[in-house]
Amino acid sequence: MSTLLSVQGVSKRFGGLTAVDNASLEVVDGSITGLIGPNGAGKTTLFTVIAGFEPATAGTVRFEGRDITGLPAHVRAMQGIARTFQIVQPFAGLSVRENIAVGAFLRHKARHAALEQADAVGHQVGLGPLLDQSAGQLTVAGRKRLELARALATAPRLLLLDEVLAGLNPSEIRDMMPVVQAIRSSGVTILIVEHVMQAVMSLCDTVHVLAQGRIIAAGPPGAVSRDPAVIEAYLGHGAAARMQAQDIRQAEARGRNPGAHHA
């Protein structure tokens, strides 16, 4: 149980807007860690800072114990941090295989080795039959898989997944979840931003909740989902109290009329 990624007091300001405010979180080696929060909470911005696409205004990011706060994105990728994009960014003019091979070239200098690796990763994420297709022709689900495959082809230690399930239908989500689990089983640690709660609940070991740029809760998904502060962040001020009152009223109603809930 060692810490792979440690974010300490990271803030990111864009002019007067504070997108991330003194956020800290840790990702344990071998875990699937979730980062959730309402829209506009700063999840993607925090991801961007962790991946090195934007410099942090304050705070430090440590990976495998080393301070990587000042390193550019490509060096972080070299050290083993890969990310996907919420808005998919395929190399539209290239085939699926060539797309994945760009990632594979990070660890393989020779073309045939990179292409072999691309084939293997393509099959792993279920893109096997589509390897020769142009990436521009893929469906939304296919593009999400391609994002995953490309990041995976860089042989990362830490995979940052930014809403890989968003925009998928329920059956596509069911198909995708075992893929994510298999990636973890193969030894890759995952930090995932996700809105699909069903997926967060079943995939994540630990969840961090970001609201208005701050981490307001952290812990196992079950406990976090019952945290009053989290409920308020999603549903508005006073929501937790109202829901609690509603629960009590329902319990009282059942107490007065024990057969009611069977009717």
């Binding site: 991946a51 990728a77 990310r83 960014q89 395929p90 190399f91 003019g93 760009v102 990041a151």
Partner: peptide, 19 residues
């Protein structure tokens, strides 16, 4: 491959370790 990746999408290329 890196050069073509930069042409197609520079951000995505950087995420894959391309300087």
């Amino acid at each position: 491959a890196h050069l073509v990746a930069v042409r197609e999408n520079e951000e995505a290329a950087r995420a894959l370790g391309v300087d």
